[in-house]
């Protein structure tokens, strides 16, 4: 069942502020002057076709890539001006859920979840680590998988564990890269509900990268659409698709075939 989504957004507090960002790979210009703000408590959905630079955008936010031009301000810090240690510290406040889940194959689920905790909060005792692991597993509804290997899990379970691994550090911002890609419709609903639950329970602000309109409709407080390297449309779900733009309309029609 699709659960109702409610957010408490503070429009005076920008947790992410991106201004005039350009990014190219060789001769391929991906982002051409992107401006974007994420407000505290908001779920922002970034829509766009494959290869339009949606994932590049969140990699820029987390400092995995650096912009060619422009500024990226995250939680008051300018990402491209931070040194390695400062960036590492900032990343603890940003959760990144990868499209491929990116679970460590050679580790059990417990070890996967402990990994960021053990390395970043070295003062924690064994009992406290165990408690944190059990709590996040319970939050994603997969307590029974604690001693399993990632290869033993389904795609949806892997996504959930990937989200749990980011939650263990209790981030302020969540970045979801195609959270429902490759999943069946029922599992997609579960993941969408989980994104909303995470926002409610952990008070996160989130950017959700997707081309799944059901996901966008379920989780998004605001939707922006990346077209030709720029955000050309933004608003709620109905506002975004209230257009005859040939680049936007097929997107809607394909997702909601009567």
């Amino acid at each position: 069942m699709i659960k109702q989504h409610t957010s408490t957004i503070d429009y005076n507090d920008k947790v992410i502020d991106i201004h005039d960002v350009y990014k190219s790979f060789g001769t391929l210009e991906v982002l051409k002057g992107v401006d974007l703000q994420l407000f505290k408590g908001e779920n922002l959905v970034v829509l766009g076709r494959s290869g339009t630079g949606k994932s590049v955008l969140i990699k820029l936010i987390s400092g995995l890539l650096m912009p060619d031009q422009g500024t990226i301000n995250v939680l008051g810090e300018q990402v491209d001006e931070l040194d390695v240690k400062e960036l590492q510290k900032l990343r603890l406040r940003i959760g990144f859920s990868f499209q491929s889940s990116a679970l460590y194959d050679s580790m059990t689920i417990r070890e996967n979840l402990e990994f960021p905790l053990v390395r970043n909060k070295r003062h924690l005792k064994r009992a406290e680590i165990d408690e944190s692991v059990e709590n996040v597993l319970e939050a994603v509804g997969l307590s029974q998988t604690i001693n399993q290997m990632p290869s033993e899990l389904s795609g949806g379970q892997r996504k959930r564990i990937g989200i749990a691994r980011t939650l263990i550090l209790q981030p302020d911002i969540m970045l979801y890269d195609e959270p429902t890609a490759g999943l069946d419709p029922i599992t997609c609903i579960d993941i969408n509900n989980l994104i909303n639950e995470v926002q409610q329970q952990y008070k996160t602000s989130s950017i959700i990268i997707t081309h799944d309109l059901a996901c966008a409709k379920t989780v998004g407080d605001r939707i922006v659409m990346l077209l030709d390297g720029r955000f050309e449309r933004q608003g709620n779900f109905d506002e975004i698709f209230d257009t005859d733009d040939a680049r936007v309309k097929p997107f809607h029609d394909y997702n909601f075939i009567d």
């Binding site: 990144f96 990868f98 390395r119």
Partner: peptide, 9 residues
């Protein structure tokens, strides 16, 4: 990348 964004070198 997942290691890097989780604050691990």
């Amino acid at each position: 990348d997942a290691m890097e964004v989780s604050g691990t070198n």
